[in-house]
Amino acid sequence: MTSKPADPIKEAEKRALSNKDLFKTFARWYSVVEVSNSYERLQALSFCFALSGSLRKLYKGDDEGYREALKRHIQFYNSEGTFGSMIHGVTLSMEEEKAKGNEITEEVVTGFKTGLMGPIAGIGDTLIWGTLKPIILALACSLALNGVFVGGLIPFLFPLAIVLIGFGMLKSGYLLGKESVMKLMQTGLINNIITSASILGLFMMGALSSTYIKISTPIQFSVMDSDPIVLQDILDQILAGILPLCAVFSIYFYFKYKGQNYNKLIIMLIVISLVTGFFGILSSS
């Protein structure tokens, strides 16, 4: 860092990249995040492509530096795309220093990226994919089930939110720089926000599980000529929603202790459903 930036906004006027450059970087990132996702390096190519324009500007007339930078950022990268944009911002601010000739080694840049992509993915997956997405889709579904056509369009609020949050993250990452972002990550505030978001997410997952997992048992016993005993009524008296709850936690513990093999589990679930449905042990209601 040059001097201590007292006011990062004012400082921005002296920076090499303009708001427009940052927006272009974000637009590139936003467009391609998952397009070139490969097993080998996941989002590496998208990361490199997103930064390529701004790096060219930073390393103006320095082809060797530009080449090194491109190669530096085509290495393994994977994080959550929305909050992860902050890493792009910080990376650009570090590359800016490096291009000016300041002493920043390649290890520092790469170390920062790889060190932060995990924790940031944790925040993003919780807030964006684990909380925001199911809430938006659940609201859309409840409208659509009533035949309201807007329900089919509400899912578009999700990418809109991603654009707004993601660009904000990239910009603040660039303006704040590495030191401030690290400091911010170390204050408890981020942790408090993650905890609260998880609480909202879990609360909603509970509510949605109860609303949308629909299984019950049609089993009835008739003893002599008396009224048949309906098993589901007994279960409801013990604990409402006991079967959906069992379904969620059976899958949860399966993943936790047997590894996350989705294909195998889905096929198992379908087989179990077919068998229990065929013999009238379970039904959907």
Partner: peptide
Amino acid sequence: DGFSVAGGILPALGFAIILLIIG
């Protein structure tokens, strides 16, 4: 009937995955 049971159970898969992440 079996497939409709599957349709009733499968939402549990997604919720369980989210539980693994934020639970």
